[in-house]
Design a protein around this nucleic acid. Sequence first.
DNA 1: TATTTCACCTGCGAT
DNA 2: AATCGCAGGTGAAAT
Lengths: 152, 152
Amino acid sequence: MSEEEKHPLFEKPLTPSDVGKLNRLVIPKQHAEKWFPSPVLGGYGGPVAGDRGLLLAFEDEAGLTWRFRYSYWNSSQSYVLTKGWSRYVKEKKLDAGDIVCFLRHRENVGRLFIGCKRAAAASRSSATAAGHPYLGISSLHPSDCSSHAAGK
Amino acid sequence: MSEEEKHPLFEKPLTPSDVGKLNRLVIPKQHAEKWFPSPVLGGYGGPVAGDRGLLLAFEDEAGLTWRFRYSYWNSSQSYVLTKGWSRYVKEKKLDAGDIVCFLRHRENVGRLFIGCKRAAAASRSSATAAGHPYLGISSLHPSDCSSHAAGK
DNA sequence: TATTTCACCTGCGAT
DNA sequence: AATCGCAGGTGAAAT
């Protein structure tokens, strides 16, 4: 997958809650409604619809697939990634202020990608050593990823 | 609604937690089990049952309806009013030590009423000017009440 | 039992 | 002034 085939959709700087014990990532409404399939109405074929919300799959910079439950919370009128999100935070060692990036394939708009960047220059030394601003995957083991295939 | 048709059930002096950020009122168990429909088993027709707990409606001294979610919390073995309660506290300007009163209709026992009184004589001057110990409703607008109907 | 997931709820800042 | 998005919470259920 060349970088040219990935089209950036949006980025979100992570809040303390996004990386904390709430185990969820709030997707800003304007981006959710513009770029993601509706978790209420159901998706565009690709995602697997469950009883509630959707199961969305994202490929990371290493080509590994991360699956997250994507739901709409009526009470707070918010779109959120829930199941699977905390695993991603832990694996990528994300902290508040870091930025998560969402992208899609240039031709196949149903193929989604996820990436992340450190917030400040101070903590970039190890990431930039890999040649680009995205975090490395040296700590990611195959077993971590295969377990993500589990559905609901 | 004449006062004679309202039958007092019980009163509770409000604790700091009852009027604080926990946004809930603990209903003493003996009163809850004696006077309110069980939020676990479901109500007696009048209240609208939700997925969890009940939605109880209470009329205040002005005839305005306040709806609260009424639940049983297994963790603390307590009966509580949750959703809607903080709005009532704010609107009636309740403080710790103030007293909330619950009443029901003399014939229609499913028709509930709520009222409140100041704890001490010092702050009663404006309320007694209205002719009774209940707080006035001069600051309560109709819109405040109709919005309480929301909730699934 | 501990942790994660889930569907709720609310204060507050931005608008 | 009133509305809306969302950050930061909850209890309960699932795992």
